[in-house]
Design a protein around this nucleic acid. Sequence first.
RNA 1: GGUCCCGUAGCUCAGUUGGAUAGAGCAACAGCCUUCUAAGCUGUGGGUCGCGCGUUCGAGUCGCGCCGGGAUCACCA
Length: 596
Amino acid sequence: MIADKLAEFTLKAVHDLYGQAIPNELIQIEKTNREFTGDYTLVVFPMSRFSKKSPADTAHEIGAYLEKNISELSKTEVIKGFLNITLHDNFWVNFFIENLNNENFGINQKATGKPVVIEYSSPNTNKPLHLGHIRNNLLGFSLAQILKANGHHVVKINLVNDRGIHICKSMLAWIKWGNEATPESTGLKGDHLIGKYYVLFDKKHKEQIAEFVHRGYTEDDAFEQAPIMKEAKEMLKKWEAGDEEVLSIWKLMNNWAYDGFDQTYKRLGVDFDYINYESKTYLDGKKMVEEGLRKEVFYKREDNSVWVDLRDEGLDEKLLLRGDGTSVYITQDLGTAQRRHDQFNPGQMLYVVGNEQIYHFDVLKKILKKLGRDWSKNIYHLSYGMVELPHGRMKSREGTVVDADDLMDEMYETAQKTTEELGKTTDFNEQQLHELYHLVSMGALKYFILRVDPKKNILFNPEESIDFNGNTGPFIQYTYARIQSIFRKAEKSPEEYIPLLDSTKIELSPVEKEIIRIIYEFPLAIHAAGENYSPATIANYAYELAKTYNHYYQDTPILKRVEQDTANFRVLLSWFTGRIIKLSMSLLGVAVPEKM
RNA sequence: GGUCCCGUAGCUCAGUUGGAUAGAGCAACAGCCUUCUAAGCUGUGGGUCGCGCGUUCGAGUCGCGCCGGGAUCACCA
C-alpha cells in the first residue's frame, strides 16, 4: 500500500531532517479532501513539535524530502498544516494493469491460522422465522464470507434450539386442537403450521389466566396454575424422561419445522457447515458443572441446585443446574463452547446473537474463565440491534412480527411489478424472470439490512416497502447489469481487450482516477469489515463504487464514439469495476444480474 | 435503581478509529433519454452532530456530568 510507503518515508524524513525518532502513531496519512488537489494528505501538526518549526515550514521540508525519495510522487502542496501529496497517474495506471486480470483481487485465497467458529441463526423450532432472524442470518452469513476473504478458515454452525417448554406449548396445542393437521393436509409450510399452535397456546393460556385472576389469583400464580401451563410442564418432564409418545410427536413436529427452515434458508441463500441440536448437546454442560463443583468454583444449595458466584466480577449469583438436575440455558452453552474448543481449537469463537443476550454471554465468559479455560478470551458475542416496528419491537406471541417468508414474498412481488413497469425484460423467459425477481428482491432486502451498523437498531416500517432506488441493493445490481450490457454491445469479450491495451495511451480523467482509487481500496475495506465484524463497511463500499461508476457512465462514452485506445481502457475499467461490485456484493451474500 | 447500547438534515443512514467548510439516499422543487439500460444523472433548499463542561494546535469522533430512547438484571431460551 502506497500509504504505508508514504508513512515510512515520513518517518525517515523526520529522522534525517530533525534527528528525531517519532512514534508511528503520530503519522497520519489520509485521503485528500475533495476540495483540494491531491491523493493523500499528511497531517503535519504533530511533527512540528519535533521540527521546532511552524507546521507550514515543516510541511514544506518534509514535502521536499518525499518528492526527492519517492518515485511515485508527482507533486506536493502545503496548505496550513496539511501536506497534500499527488501521485503520478502512472502509479494508478500501473496498479490498474497489474491487477486487472486478478479475478480475486482483494480476496485472501489461502486460509491460515486457527479457524474461526461462527454460530448464527440458532432458531427455536416452535415458530417460523421473522425479520429479526433474517437480520441474524444475513449478518452471520456475510461475516463468514468477510472472514474467509480475510484469510480465515471459517466454520459455520447452526445450534438449533429444539427442546424446552416452548416446543411443548406448540405440541400441546396441536394435540388438543390440531385434529392431526399436517403440512400436507393443510398446505401450510411446516414451521408456519407449528407457529399457529404456538400462538393458539398463548391465546388459550391468556384466557385461563384471565379466568384465574377473576377468581382471585395473582397474575403470577394464575400464569403458573393455568391448567394448560401445567400440562405443558408435565409434557416437558415426559420428554426429559424419554416418553415414547411425546418423543414421537416431538420428532414429527420438529421435522416439519426443519423442512420449513430449510426452505427459508435456501431462499435467503445462507448455509452452515454443521447443524447441532440442543437436544443432543444439552447434557454436555453437566460434566462441566461437576468439574466446577470439584474445583469448588461452584457450590450447591440445600435444594441440590448448583450455583456460581460472580459477584467478585461485578455480576450476580447464577443458577447452573436446577435442583432436579435438569440443565438451563447457560449449562448447555458451557457444554457447547467446550465441544467447539475441543473439536476445532478455534482462534475465535463468534456468536451472532441479539443484544438482549449481552448479559448471558458476559456470564458465559466469566464462568469459563473461573473454570480455567483461558480460551474464553476468544469468545466474541456479536450483539446486533433489534429490528423495530414503528410501534415498538416485534412479539411472536402477539402476532406483531414481520414474517420472513411473507416479507420475501412481498419483496418478490414488488420486484416483479417494478420490472414489468420498466419493460426491459421482454426477451426473458419464465425461468429467467423468476430468477431476476428473486435476485433483485433479495438484493433489496439484504442490502437494506446489512448496510446499517450491526449494533444499531433497525427501524422497519411495513407500510413503506423497501426501496429499489437510491442507496439500495438494486441500484448496485443495476450498475453491474449496465456494465455487462457494454460487453454485449462490444464485438469482443472484455478479456480480448487486455492485449490491446496500450498503457502509454492512457490519460486518466478525474473520475477514472477516482474509480481506480476506490478499487485500490477494496482490500482495505475487506480488512476493516473483518476487524470490526461489520458487513455495513462492505455495503457502503459497494455503494460508493457503484455511485462513482454511474456518474462516470452517465457522461463518458465507454465504447462508442471514442478512439480505439481510449475504448480499450474504458471497457477494461468497466470490467474491473463490475468484478469488484460483484465480489463485494458476494461478501454480503447478494448476487448480481447480467441484465435487468 | 445497577450495567450496557444508541442519539448526526423532515425520514432512513454514512462519517476511513482526533484533522481542513459534516456527507449520501428518501421525500420536495427544477432540469436531462434520435448516443453503450432513466432501477440512472445534474442542480436547489434542508444541520446548535441531544445538552453542558473538559482534554489539545484541532472534537460528530476521546473523558466526565446531565437529558431522551432501547436492552438487560429468571430454576425462559
